[in-house]
């Protein structure tokens, strides 16, 4: 049985922010991560603030500038099936379709997928690790098969979201409501690496909630794709994933974004590999070069070096495929 908590059903965004600001409130949207964390004692809370009654957070609307605003409460199923998303932001629809199981996609929300807690088994288990205020990361000397190969510093989690890399590849922005009003943060800057603050996963401050994700209009001719590799075929978190968004002109790459899942404590953008790809002829040779560059900074732990050839092979295949698509 879940430990007890008080429950506040927020009538508005303002009401949710007020509720969260009192004590150590936690947001309930789909609940699939929150209830798991409470049952596993990852954290405790006195107050659960439900935002599921706030209708405006469920909307998916085209923006006046030709982009798309996706309410934080849009379910993962809705994101994967929305015709506008499928047509204009296919990597996002593909990523959403790869999230968890049908039941969890029907229940989980886009906001929740971005704000979910890490899946490291030490963090989720009875280990007072660095991220929970302890003095060490147990993965360093432990079972680190599923941990990061990039960006680990003190803590070696991987970010569990599939949708985040796709959203970053499109240059999406999070709209955040809080006690001080509304603010917007590029999704690329929304996630906090352990080098900056090992106890936080996102830039959200106390009392803040994500209200929407705003996608800019897709660039004309942009090709995008998300691929996820996992150890179980049915459903699982990513061992390795890549979101690609590439535009070519006269056969040469003019824009490129490559963002990885399952690789680092935050969705991992490969800026150097992107830069090296721009100006190149799209095809197998540039794909090979990009893949080699992609993994040059990898720092595997004892049990996860297999991720290096996995990412390298996946990136090479997908950059080549998308270039020829």
């Amino acid at each position: 049985m879940t430990p007890g908590f008080s429950y506040r059903r927020a009538a508005s965004i303002k009401d949710a922010v007020t509720g969260l600001s009192e004590g150590n409130g936690r947001i309930l949207a789909g609940g699939t991560d929150l209830l798991g964390c409470l049952r596993d004692s990852v954290f405790t809370t006195d107050m659960v603030v439900s935002i599921t009654g706030i209708k405006e957070l469920k909307r998916i609307d085209e923006t006046p500038g030709g982009g798309l605003s996706i309410g934080a409460l849009a379910t993962i199923t809705e994101v994967s099936e929305n015709p506008v998303i499928r047509e204009r932001y296919p990597a996002l629809a593909q990523a959403a379709a790869e999230v968890a199981s049908p039941q969890l996609r029907n229940q989980g929300t886009l906001g929740g997928n971005l704000c979910q807690k890490p899946r490291c088994w030490y963090y989720r288990g009875e280990f007072h690790c660095l991220r929970k205020g302890g003095d060490r990361c147990y993965a360093v000397a432990g079972e680190n098969h599923y941990h990061c190969i990039f960006g680990g510093k003190g803590c070696y989690i991987v970010h569990p979201s599939d949708t985040a890399p796709a959203l970053i590849a499109y240059g999406a922005e999070a709209t955040i409501a809080g006690p001080a009003g509304m603010r917007k943060v590029s999704l690329e800057n929304f996630f906090v690496p352990p080098a900056k603050d090992v106890t936080k996963e996102t830039v959200l401050e106390a009392g803040e909630i994500v209200t929407a994700i705003v996608l800019p209009p897709p660039l004309a001719g942009l090709k995008s794709f998300y691929r996820k590799i996992r150890s179980r075929q049915s459903w699982d978190f990513a061992l390795a994933g890549v979101a690609l968004a590439i535009r070519t002109s006269n056969g040469r790459v003019t824009d490129a974004r490559i963002v990885l899942s399952g690789a680092a404590p935050i969705p991992w953008r490969l800026v150097d590999a992107e830069k090296a790809l721009i100006g190149k002829v799209a095809g197998p040779d540039s794909a090979k070069h990009t893949a080699a560059l992609s993994i040059k900074d990898a720092q595997p732990l004892k049990h996860n070096a297999y991720k290096i050839p996995l990412f390298k092979g996946m990136i090479e295949e997908e950059v080549a495929n998308i270039s020829q698509a």
């Binding site: 429950y7 059903r9 029907n106």
Partner: peptide, 16 residues
């Protein structure tokens, strides 16, 4: 099924 869609009852609060 919740509104016709499969969901996990263990991860759904009754108040919701």
């Amino acid at each position: 099924l919740i509104d016709g869609m499969p969901r996990y009852a263990c991860m759904t609060l009754a108040v919701e």
